[in-house]
Design a protein around this nucleic acid. Sequence first.
DNA 1: CTCACTATTGCTATGACTTGCGATAACCGA
DNA 2: TCGGTTATCGCAAGTCATAGCAATAGTGAG
Lengths: 139, 139
Amino acid sequence: MDLGSDLRAKGKRLTVQRRLVLEAVQRARHHVTADEVAKRVRGEAGQIDPSTVYRNLEALEELGYVTHTHLGSRVTRWHRADMHQHAHLVCRSCGAEDEVPVSVFTGLARRLRTSHGFRADLAHSAVEGICRRCAVVQS
Amino acid sequence: MDLGSDLRAKGKRLTVQRRLVLEAVQRARHHVTADEVAKRVRGEAGQIDPSTVYRNLEALEELGYVTHTHLGSRVTRWHRADMHQHAHLVCRSCGAEDEVPVSVFTGLARRLRTSHGFRADLAHSAVEGICRRCAVVQS
DNA sequence: CTCACTATTGCTATGACTTGCGATAACCGA
DNA sequence: TCGGTTATCGCAAGTCATAGCAATAGTGAG
Ligand SMILES: [Mn+2]
Ligand SMILES: [Mn+2]
Ligand SMILES: [Zn+2]
Ligand SMILES: [Zn+2]
C-alpha cells in the first residue's frame, strides 16, 4: 500500500508537509529530533511550522511509518519504523550512551506478558544507570 | 544526621524554601509533581518560585532525601527516598498504570551488570506497552 | 554580634513541545 | 471539472523544565 491510500483509509489526508516530514525521517540514517526534521524539510522545500512537524510525526506513527524513543535528555528521537530494534543504556553520571540488542529484554518481556498480560515495549525509553567507567571512579 | 548538617557537609545551605520543599514531599503519601510541591508550599508558607522548587528537589535528591521517577506522561514524579521501591507499567493506549515489584527486574539488571558493566536503575522510567484489557480489545 | 563570602532566590529568557483557532487546501461526490 | 465538507496548516499562547543573572540571605570567621 502507498502512503496516500494508507492515510485516506484512516480518514486522514496526504499533504505536502506530511510527505516531506516522512521523507525527512526516512532519509535520516539514525534517529532524528523533530527540530532536525524541520530543518531538513526547510532545506528541501519552503517553511514549515514546528507544530506541523510534531503533529505529522504523530500521525505517521499511528500509521506505523515512524516510531519514537526517549533517550536521556528531554528530546524525543524519531526514526523509521522498519529499522532494526535496539535499546539504549544511558549513564546518569557522564551521559554516555550504549546500545544493546532487544534480545536482552525478551526474558523480561515474556515475564511481564505472562504474569501481568502486559505487552512491554522495553526499547521505548532508555535505561538509566551508571556505566562501567563511572562505577569504577566513584567506588 | 539532620538536614542542616547534611547540607553544610556538602557546602550547601539550609534555606526556608529548601526545608519547605522537603517537608512537602515527605508529607505526601504518594509521588508528587514539582507543581504539586509548589502548591503545597504556597499553602503552608508564602510564595515560592517554580525554579526554586526544581532546584531544591534536585539538591535534595543529591543528598539522598528524595528521588524521582518518570511516568508515561513525561511528567516527573518526586517522592521520599525511603519509600518502598516499585516499577510502573503504563498502557500506551488507555494510560492505565500498574505497579510491579522491582524483583521482576533483578534478572535483567544482573545481566546488564555482567555483560556491560552497567548498573541499571530499571524502576526509574515507567515501562510503556499495551495492557491486558487494551490488547484484548485491539485483537 | 558583625561582616564578608558566596550559595540560593526570584525573575526573565530559552527550549521542547502542546493546544486552540481561524484560514487553507485535500478529498469526494455530483 | 466544480463545490462543499472538514482535515490540516500556520500562528499565537500556554506548559514543564532548565539556565543566566543581579539581589538576597545563610554561614563561618573574627
Ligand atoms: Mn514515548
Ligand atoms: Mn530521571
Ligand atoms: Zn558514565
Ligand atoms: Zn490499556
